[in-house]
């Protein structure tokens, strides 16, 4: 039986399809708009922060305080994470390598991976879990309790007062933490290589020295510097845009950490690609 176009358009199925299509389009539109708003807001915050730093409007005492809170207080967890990662990496590779007669390369493999990838990235992920959440939660609770507005009403710029000290502190401390992570990761690997695969310390270190150059260490530290910017800017932006009381603070902290860790993994790949692709 033939139906007219009008009958088809007015049928319940067609109306349901239309409703779902409009719903999907609206949802995609909202997400794209949210993402553009987030990116725009973050870019503005970074621009404000850069301007404040270049004008040297820096609160040194607060920067030192943040070095302690964000950097020094993360030292133990960074060391533990790096130590056990170096150890497990060595455990997995050393025994196999010795079996196939490549025992003398284990030091190089472990240190190469730790210095170029694991040291900077793991330190950043651990610090992101701790510092990014702390920054988002602290600034978020200041936002919902009107303390950010109070700062503005006192003629003080929140970027200079809150964001810049945290950014400078982590730009100093994360590379330092990465150096510690590199050293402890390599020594952890060396210890397990000796204990499990009987690879001598001298052989391990000789292989490490041959494989890893100063340039690799510098590139790893450059990565740490970029990760520091990501951690502070994401945490600060999430915190400063918090809405909705205590629940909003929790949401900000969670989404700051998730966004930050995802960005660290993506940026780590991008930087490795451009920094080491020619090597």
């Amino acid at each position: 039986m033939a139906h007219t176009l009008r009958e088809v358009e007015e049928s319940p199925t067609a109306q349901a399809v239309e409703r779902v299509s409009v719903g999907v389009l609206a949802s995609v539109g909202r997400r794209v708009s949210d993402m553009l708003e987030y990116t725009g807001g973050l870019t503005m915050l970074m621009w404000e922060t850069a301007k404040t730093i270049f004008r040297l409007r820096i609160r040194f005492a607060e920067t030192l305080n943040q070095c302690y809170l964000l950097g020094y207080q993360s030292l133990i967890i960074v060391l533990l994470t790096s130590l056990f990662t170096g150890m497990v990496f060595s455990l997995e590779s050393a025994v196999q390598a010795v079996q196939y007669g490549f025992g003398s390369f284990v030091g190089g493999i472990v240190s190469y991976t730790v210095v170029r990838e694991l040291g900077p990235m793991l330190s950043a992920v651990v610090v992101a879990g701790r510092a990014c959440a702390a920054i988002a939660a602290e600034l978020g609770s200041m936002e919902v309790t009107e303390q950010i507005e109070a700062l503005k009403s006192l003629g003080l710029a929140p970027v200079r007062f809150l964001v810049v000290p945290r950014l400078l502190a982590l730009m100093i401390m994360l590379p330092l933490l990465t150096i510690f992570a590199d050293v402890i990761g390599v020594y952890g690997g060396q210890w397990i290589a000796h204990a499990q695969a009987h690879i001598g310390t001298q052989d391990f270190m000789a292989s490490a020295r041959q494989t890893v150059g100063f340039e690799d260490v510098v590139k790893g530290l450059f990565k740490a510097l970029v990760f520091a910017v990501v951690i502070v800017m994401i945490g600060s932006y999430q915190g400063l845009t918090t809405k909705g009381g205590a629940a909003g603070v929790g949401k900000s902290a969670t989404s700051a950490v998730v966004t930050c860790i995802i960005l660290i993994f993506i940026l780590n790949f991008v930087m490795s690609y451009f920094l080491y692709a020619g090597a």
Partner: peptide, 10 residues
């Protein structure tokens, strides 16, 4: 500006 809940920096 005196805020409703004071908004002192804690």
């Amino acid at each position: 500006f005196a805020f409703q809940f004071a908004a002192l920096f804690d």
